[in-house]
Design a protein around this nucleic acid. Structure first.
Lengths: 364, 364
DNA sequence: AAAAATTTAGCAACAGCGTTGCGTAATAGG
DNA sequence: CCTATTACGCAACGCTGTTGCTAAATTTTT
């Protein structure tokens, strides 16, 4: 995801990333696998594989005898050749995960954060947490950086927390900059929901298509994966899905509007009617499908996963019940497989993406 | 937008497209203009400019004396070096436009279509319309193709009309294929709203950012421009914005759900209360902003433009009134400048984009 | 056991991209 | 007339993926 000009260096990064995508998706692979997936010539793939092997990112792992002819060399990703740490900063807790190059969560730890914590307090918590998690000097040398998934609004491009909801000391804090200085690590900052959908995209691989992660947890938000990358919007503020109106004359919401999905959902939850709450959320999800035509919807968030089957059923039914939904218009509904780690893991994956993912070309 | 592998040919297409984008955006430009816009070296830009000049797409147009030193060569786009024809296929009418390389609509014509017209009838209407519009053999040689903007559902990638709403003879019609055969022209098929937003993106240039075109005309739809390209969704069905629920217990809609934006809006219109209809639409638009964080919203469609000021005011106010909308979170609301030509023109621009726009890399 | 067929791997030369180094052209000012 | 300044472009270069061809490793056939 590094932003580059369209020179030959872009080609290297792009094709290398495609090979890495194959390596991550398949337990083992060979040159012909990559050729089929990328359309590159075998010779070109050989060059890329040689580079990646030299860097220790992949390694030969035996041979496959094709019945007749010279055996093909089988390769495999070396998951512990690179790591990234992901942080999920919530209002009261800090969750840290250690993710390897394969996207596996190797360690996960939660620590409490002081009420109304300051940037300094967060940095201290991060520093000690990272030290325990990546203590050995050996592992530290393979650490590519720290990804932070956090409640917004924030400015992803500049690594700036504009105004975290419900946290007094977080107005225009240049978190990326001060964290990089304090921790001596590259830092990547993003909205929690966007980090979360990145994690799902890693797990599902190339088949993920256009998708959304729906998160219910002290508010309702959504992360979007559109056209092969995260959609953050013009000001990194996409995903305020809970504050879309679904009941024109509904109850007033904290955001000032009336009948927001979040407040209607909240009332149902307060009344103990989880089934109704789930159906309300499902209406919102179908609204998203009508608008964006998504192939996958992933359900996540602590409050939702507490009643995961209720929500899964309600959303699946609502998606399927739409009469106009022909069989070519299929949307799959999933529960997040990463559970509470989703956001922190996704933040870590974004760091790995910066090094080994598709490079981003400068816009138009 | 041609799909290619990431070889050196991609670089040529990409950087060439960026130079063309500069040429279209500026009336005149010089090498240094392009250098600043692209980050390429002057030498690289010279090579691209030489190619484009040889192809007749741009031409030298005088010199600029920088006060001191050798004068810089000024270049300009040659608008009539290439053309494309755009078609807007609606339920009762066919609108054809001739668009030049600069994006200017050079001719526009509307002809009636028979009630419940068949594919054959449409092809005949297209053939005669194209012949009148691009009659001279000279112009025909500079015609790059035909773009068709049409009501869905359809399959953009395969050029297939799945099931045009309200047209009996349009089930699984391979329109692109048969039109290419019948008209001997490259044909590009897309949803009307997506074509419309492409037209707006061309007009606004690189500053368009994430944006939506809202269209009110025998239904309510939206076209999306996200991350520098059109967002069509997993099955080319994005934009069914009118069938998002805004009133949970609202009136039943043709789509089977209750309280869709479209039916609520329709009731207000029927009651003669345009102001209320506009406010309903505005709620839907703000929903989009909350979800997608758009920088631009363009209002279009015959039914809307008939009361353009009412709608513009209502939407602008709703967008601005949102209390949480800080000054960094600015969204601009516009009326479509192309009026009734927007969709046909956008369809034509998509054809030009295929030749002279950013090439699309194969997905992951 | 030897030869043929088949599949994979990789060296070497190549075309094409943007970059770099540097020489040349065109102008204004002294 | 000389110098500073600005713009332009040839030529060499490094890098990409591609192409042509040879070599290696294996099974099947003779």
């Amino acid at each position: 995801m590094t932003r580059v000009t369209a020179d030959v260096g872009f080609l290297r990064g792009y094709n290398q990333a495609r090979v890495m995508a194959v390596a991550r998706a398949a337990r083992t692979f060979e040159r012909s696998t990559v050729v089929a997936a990328t359309g590159l010539t075998p010779q070109a793939v050989s060059k890329v594989i040689a580079r990646l092997t030299a860097d220790g990112l992949i390694r030969p792992a035996g041979v496959r005898r094709p019945g007749i002819g010279k055996p093909a060399v089988v390769y495999a990703l070396v998951p512990d050749s690179r790591y990234a740490i992901g942080a999920h900063v919530a209002r009261r807790t800090l969750r840290l995960v250690l993710v390897d190059l394969a996207g596996t969560v190797r360690h996960s730890a939660v620590s409490p954060l002081p009420r109304d914590f300051t940037p300094e307090q967060l940095l201290d918590a991060l520093a000690t947490g990272i030290d325990t998690m990546a203590g050995t000097a050996d592992l530290r040398s393979r650490l590519t950086g720290l990804g932070i998934g956090m409640i917004g609004p924030l400015d992803h491009a500049n690594g700036l927390v504009r105004d975290a909801h419900g946290l007094r000391h977080w107005h225009d804090v240049p978190l990326r900059e001060i964290a990089e200085k304090h921790l001596a690590l590259p830092v990547h900052l993003d909205k929690d929901v966007t980090a979360g959908v990145t994690a799902e995209a890693w797990r599902h691989g190339a088949t993920f298509g256009d998708a959304a992660l729906i998160m219910v947890e002290s508010g309702i938000g959504a992360g979007f994966w559109l056209g092969g990358t995260a959609h953050r919007g013009a000001h990194t503020n996409a995903g305020e899905f809970g504050h879309t109106v679904v009941a024109l004359d509904g109850p007033g919401c904290v955001c000032g509007r009336h009948g927001c999905l979040e407040i209607v959902h909240h009332h149902a939850t307060e009344a103990g009617d989880t089934a109704r709450a789930a159906r309300v959320l499902a209406v919102g999800v179908v609204n998203l499908l009508q608008t964006l035509d998504l192939a996958h919807v992933v359900l996540a968030g602590a409050d939702l996963l507490r009643h995961s089957q209720t929500y899964l059923t309600a959303v699946t039914e609502a998606v399927g019940a739409d009469a106009r939904r022909a069989d070519w218009l299929r949307t799959r509904v999933w529960l997040s497989g990463l559970g509470a780690d989703a956001i922190a893991a996704g933040a870590a994956m974004q760091v790995l993406d910066q090094h080994y993912g598709i490079p981003e070309l400068a816009p138009i």
